[in-house]
């Protein structure tokens, strides 16, 4: 785990993350990420048997303690206009965004 996040990999991540960074900030963030990778590399020091299960959460979700799924009932929201009012741009009840780029599928 001694690898580094190269500039090329970093730029790829920035695109995937839908970010657009100034050069100075990009350098700072890449350096910090590589420092974090050094800390993460300590996980390598752990002798892990392959059959150690993963834990997606700490406390077990036992059926007796978990809420069952709710009925799939349609309930009108009392104030849709209030929700739409939060959107940066709305026309006639529709949220407006800039042009959506299209890609021709081959």
């Amino acid at each position: 785990m001694s690898e580094q996040i190269t500039k090329e990999v970093f730029d790829h991540l920035v695109g995937l993350a839908a970010l657009q960074l100034e050069m100075e900030q990009a350098e700072y963030l890449r350096k910090q990420l590589n420092n974090q990778l050094k800390a993460i590399a300590e996980l390598e020091a752990i002798p892990l048997e392959k059959d150690v299960p993963i834990s997606l959460h700490g406390v077990p979700y036992e059926a007796s303690l978990s809420a069952p799924p709710r009925e799939d009932e349609w309930k009108p929201y009392p104030d849709p206009a209030g929700i739409l009012a939060q959107a940066p741009q709305v026309v006639d009840g529709y949220i407006v965004v800039p042009d959506i780029p299209h890609t021709e599928l081959k």
């Binding site: 993350a17 839908a18 970010l19 657009q20 960074l21 965004v97 800039p98 042009d99 959506i100 780029p101």
Partner: peptide, 13 residues
């Protein structure tokens, strides 16, 4: 912004 993707990027930045 030219399109939606650019708006995402500039806004999030």
């Amino acid at each position: 912004t030219a399109d939606l993707k650019e708006m995402y990027k500039i806004t999030r930045n």
